[in-house]
């Protein structure tokens, strides 16, 4: 299991739909460059980790990569060849709920070209469309 919460209030959750745009976590706050989601969706812990590995390997130890999302939501599924009913399935994986505008990753301490290349590799691992953004200075 990759990223997941240490403690939860409830073991299982309802799915719910992803509505609206991100009103929080929508700016570059730690690094210089960010990868921003343009679509709503769920990003599971394996995808988050794959994205991080893709960019960190490309940067080869230079700079720093921040993950701005965390998979708080459990997703359950019913085992194969099981008849319907008998209650909700078991938790299979964990996802981060992402709204358009959410900054998913940030990079700092590297030139812009390197950050762009690194994020291009990350973007291939993600299930949502993303774009490259820079930190807004001053105001």
């Amino acid at each position: 299991m990759g990223l997941m919460p240490k403690r939860v209030k409830h073991r299982k959750e309802q799915r719910r739909s992803v509505k609206g745009r991100a009103t929080r976590g929508n700016t570059v706050a730690f690094g210089e460059y960010g990868l921003q989601a343009l679509q709503p969706g769920w990003i599971n812990s394996r995808q988050i980790e794959a994205g991080r590995v893709a960019s960190t390997h490309f940067l080869a130890g230079e700079g720093k990569v921040w993950i701005r999302i965390f998979p708080h939501k459990p997703v359950t599924s019913t085992a194969a060849e099981t008849r319907m009913g008998k209650g909700k399935g078991e938790v299979e994986y964990w996802v981060a709920v992402v709204k358009p505008g959410t900054v998913l990753y940030e990079i700092g301490g590297v030139p812009e070209d390197a950050a762009k290349e690194a994020f291009l590799r990350t973007a291939h691992k993600l299930p949502v469309r993303v774009r490259f953004i820079r930190r807004r200075h001053g105001l």
Binding site: V8, R11, V91
Partner: peptide, 15 residues
Amino acid sequence: EEAEKAGITEPEVIG
């Protein structure tokens, strides 16, 4: 992951 090392595969449920 630390959790994986410790063999924890699911989080603790509060309460």
